[in-house]
Amino acid sequence: MDNMIEMKNVSMSFGALEVLKDISLSIKRASKTVIIGPSGSGKSTLLRCINLFERPQKGKIIIDNEEITHLRHRDLCRIRQSIGMVFQAFNLYAHKTVLENLCMAPVLLKKEKYKDVKERALMHLDQVGLSDKIDSYPSKLSGGQQQRVAIARALNMEPKILLFDEPTSALDPEMISEVLNIMTKVAQEDITMIFVTHEMGFASNIADRVLFLNEGIIAEDGTPDEVFNNPKNERTKQFFSKILKHT
């Protein structure tokens, strides 16, 4: 089996609100998937089920051939070490410098040698173009820079999977492109990546596969070309006509 992530009949509700409806999905190793859809369609919830930030009431989630849905807290923590996440609000550790943000988890959790971790961190910071900021605190960085550090922090854990939860939605327009450029570069890596984003240009550049989510159901599933240019579903067409009207 060459699937990194499998979801089997996953259903999830918040109270009476059913957010994910019987979703089954396989994501191939090292593939790049983009999830799009209107707000409230369940895209973030779907993403957050993969590292069990949200616990589905029904269904199974299998990461690298290991079912994680019934794992105990300690084992779940181990699994999460290999699933990186990049957040809309960056969420850098505010009391730590950029370098410390990158080194903390690998040293404390994966018990790696600080020297090795630091070397790797410097490499990743160079990759996101922030080698000169290693001793800065997050509060001294712009939003775009913080998000680039957050990407480097996720990479420094050497994850098997990287999840991006609307990584550019909290950024000023000017900073969006600097982060998208870094993400495009990072997308060349051999890591399984899933992006929840509204950046259609980015999606068509890097995605192997685009999912359109609507009301908790995968309404469209195909290559960027198939989904963007020949959507089958009425709701998808409507969505694109709305968001493309002003571009």
Partner: peptide
């Protein structure tokens, strides 16, 4: 902020580890 908890959990910190270190 809640985001600090999520960042730590996403890296694999436990509840106690997040509390102590973050």
């Amino acid at each position: 902020s809640h985001g600090q908890w999520e960042a730590a959990y996403s890296q694999g910190f436990s509840y106690v580890g997040t509390m102590i270190h973050i």
